[in-house]
């Protein structure tokens, strides 16, 4: 993906750029809001990483101008203001996801890749497939190698989130946000417990495991 990072903290931006490039993305940097807007208009990016507080032009303002122009590039908003109301404000302004500082790089990577994928034209599918695993979003059924798998509603959503991001890392925080709509980090391994239950249903009786744990980051569903 081609990604633009608009961030005035150049040290942080450099690390993010380095990490994203190592993950195989093309990354441009802009250090203030005006430059960011100019660059976002000039080139067609797959995703924007936007700091909220920027010199010259505020992040939310930049986003608003872009959206008013009809630009639908997915945007991940970064901010030191971690409270939920700020998040709501950011999403309302047209952001696709919101990440509060301090964030870990793996979290950022997972989210950028998730929003980048969302712009895929096949995002509105009714069927998800990963290898032999199939999910019918309308009938709300899951099959693997032709075998029906019965899932609880929450397990279904958990698997859906993982399948939509198949091949990408999904962090525990992302799962909490997207499956449970919680915006705080529990102190315990509560997500791991749910994953292990899901694993018991989709992987246990089959030869190749699909649901992998990525150390220090989260989970990945992959053939």
């Amino acid at each position: 993906m081609r990604i633009l990072i608009v961030e005035d903290d150049t040290v942080a931006a450099d690390y993010v750029r380095k990490g994203l490039m190592e993950a195989g993305h093309v990354v441009d940097l802009a250090a203030d809001g005006d430059l960011g807007l100019e660059m976002a208009r000039a080139a067609d990016y797959d995703a924007l990483v936007l700091d909220r507080m920027l010199p010259k032009r505020d992040g939310l303002d930049l986003l608003k101008v872009l959206r008013d122009d009809g630009d639908k590039t997915p945007v991940l908003i970064l901010s030191a203001l971690g409270e939920v109301d700020h998040k709501v404000e950011g999403l309302r302004a047209g952001g696709d996801d919101y990440l509060a500082k301090p964030y870990s790089f793996t979290e950022l990577l997972a989210r950028v890749e998730a929003i980048g994928r969302r712009s895929d034209p096949n995002a509105a599918v009714t069927k998800l497939t990963v290898g032999e695993l199939e999910m019918d979003l309308l009938a709300r059924t899951v099959r693997r190698e032709g075998q029906n798998i019965l899932l609880q509603p929450r397990e279904f959503r958990l698997l859906e989130c993982l399948m939509r991001n198949a091949g990408r890392v999904v962090t525990r925080t992302m799962l909490l946000e997207k499956v449970w709509d919680y915006h705080f980090d529990p102190q315990t391994n509560v997500i791991d417990v749910h994953i292990s239950r899901l694993r018991g249903k989709i992987d246990k009786e089959f030869e190749t495991p699909l649901l992998h744990t990525v150390r220090g980051a989260g989970y990945r569903l992959q053939v």
């Binding site: 942080a12 190592e22 500082k101 301090p102 980051a217």
Partner: peptide, 14 residues
């Protein structure tokens, strides 16, 4: 403080 701490964590992670 969060920024350097975050960088610290990111460096360790990467």
């Amino acid at each position: 403080l969060r920024s350097p701490l975050t960088r610290l964590r990111t460096r360790l992670e990467s």
